[in-house]
Design a protein around this nucleic acid. Structure first.
Length: 423
RNA sequence: GGAGAGGUCGCAUAGUCUGGUCGAGUGCGCGCGACUGGAAAUCGCGUAGGCUGAAAGGUCUCGGGAGUUCGAAUCUCCCCCUCUCCGCCA
């Protein structure tokens, strides 16, 4: 969320951000509401001042056994006036607050206006002397992916991993957690269900409610990413400066309804309602946050480098930026059978947008300041599996297991249809 | 799910019965200072935030909300959370 003060002083900037993100918000209404609210607040506070003064006066007089009746009579009237004003003040405040929650973050000046910007391409795209199969086909032939079973027990766009498929999934999770943990991220195992305010704090709400799995009985949500629990660990806290920066890593399944996404990229594992992900979250001092963003990207990239998968880094344009993000790099892994790059990580700096909502502050020389929050996938699993199956496939239908994963799989080097025993 | 006890300024607690000099006492912690060769101990001062304001100040906040009252941390109602016991359960 943006501060009201900022909104008051920078309506043009916000207008631009709203336009870039394709939202419809009545900014003028916010500004006029703010004015009205402040006028009412002034009157209300003046009345309260009188009330408080009279109150202590009444107390004193009572002690001295003096008459208080005229004062009480007067205060009855003042209280009535306050009660007259307050409902409309509350209403205005509430309305204003709701509108404020709709405002997106402002893109950082380094964010491109038009197209996404290619920052770098890393790794070699493999060449095949045979026809490359899609991950679905590879997975089906090896018996490690079973979409039919998943759709029977649940529905469309769910996945089921079997045997070495399931074990590779687990290996990937452990490999990623270990790698990041060694880089200084503290491992967290959080709830996968969160309440409404945690979702609001991260900026998932109010715009994306339709994309969330919602547990109506409890007013809870299945997390769309571990960003939500991780970012909320310190909600409503004032941290000591020495505690920063804080780095967290967590594995979680991610639940997304993907409302309205039917038809686009829904084959196989490309877009599913539940996928595993290892997530990185940082809480940092504001002046270091852009430096920290670059390091975050590097930390996420390391996973792809160690897996020896070809990928590219994109800097998202203002239009592609998420609601809460100020700057975001996407990591996209190359999938040969798809003949395209797949997004496996978004690394964003939210500046103080989430921290303001979550009230995460720290003591600094100036007094109190909001922290900056960042997060990035490190990395999303389903599409990584796509990339492994497609990049590491061999002519005979088998798939070589990336070296770094072998220690997590009892040294197994290849997934082959013949090796039933291994599974 | 049932019964009980709680939720107060970093932590621990006082205040709630008996409404008013309580935005709130004390201890610990922390900061500054004194004492010291230096330190410990001791002593003094300071130490929650929001909004508003140039500042002085004003105002709001004692888990959240509603109510009673001239006046609510304190009384009433609803909700949330924590702890203990019981039930259920991996």
């Amino acid at each position: 969320m943006l501060s009201l003060k900022f909104v008051r002083e920078n309506p043009e900037k916000i207008g631009k951000a709203i336009k870039a993100k394709g939202l419809r918000i009545d900014l003028k209404k916010i500004l006029s509401l703010d004015k009205e609210k402040r006028a009412l607040l002034q009157e209300s506070e003046g009345l309260r001042e009188r009330k408080n003064k009279a109150s202590t006066e009444i107390a004193r007089r009572k002690k001295e056994n003096k008459t208080t009746d005229p004062l009480i009579e007067e205060m009855k009237k003042v209280s009535e006036r306050i009660k007259e004003i307050n409902p409309s003040l509350d209403e205005k405040e509430k309305e204003l607050n709701e509108l404020l929650y709709l405002l997106p973050n402002i893109p950082h000046p380094s964010v491109p206006r038009g197209e996404n910007l290619l920052i770098r391409t890393v790794g070699k795209i493999p060449e095949f002397d045979f026809e490359v199969l899609s991950h679905e086909e590879v997975g089906k032939r090896l018996g490690i992916l079973d979409f039919k079973a998943a759709s029977k027990m649940t529905g469309h766009a769910f996945s089921l991993y079997k045997g070495l498929g399931a074990r590779m999934e687990r290996a990937l999770i452990n490999f990623m957690l270990d790698t990041h943990q060694k880089q200084g991220y503290q491992e967290i195992s959080p709830p996968f269900i969160v309440n409404r305010s945690s979702m609001k704090n991260c900026g998932q709400l109010p715009w994306l409610e339709e994309d969330m799995y919602y547990l109506e009985k409890d007013d809870y949500f299945l997390i769309p990413t571990a960003e939500v629990p991780l970012t909320n660990i310190h909600q409503d806290e004032i941290l000591a400066e020495e505690e920063l920066p804080i780095y967290y890593v967590a594995y979680s399944p991610c639940f997304r309804r993907e409302a309205g996404a039917y038809g686009s990229q829904t084959k196989g594992l490309l877009r599913v309602h539940q996928f595993d992900k290892v997530e990185l979250v940082k809480l940092v001092r504001p002046k270091t946050s852009y430096e920290e963003l670059e390091k975050l990207v590097a930390d996420a990239e390391r996973i792809l480098q160690l897996l020896k998968l070809p990928y590219r880094v994109m800097l998202l344009s203002a239009g592609e930026l998420s609601f809460a993000g100020a700057k975001c790099y996407d990591l996209e892994v190359f999938a040969p059978a798809q003949k395209q790059y797949l997004e496996v990580s978004s690394c964003s700096n939210f500046e103080d947008f989430q921290a303001r909502r979550a009230k995460i502050r720290y003591h600094c020389q100036k007094g109190l300041s909001l922290v900056h929050t960042l997060n990035g996938s490190g990395i999303a699993l389903a599409r990584t599996v796509v990339a492994i199956l497609e990049n590491y496939q061999q002519k005979d239908g088998s798939v070589i297991i990336p070296e770094v994963l072998r220690p997590y799989l009892n040294g197994i080097e290849v997934i082959s249809a013949k090796d039933e025993k291994l599974r």
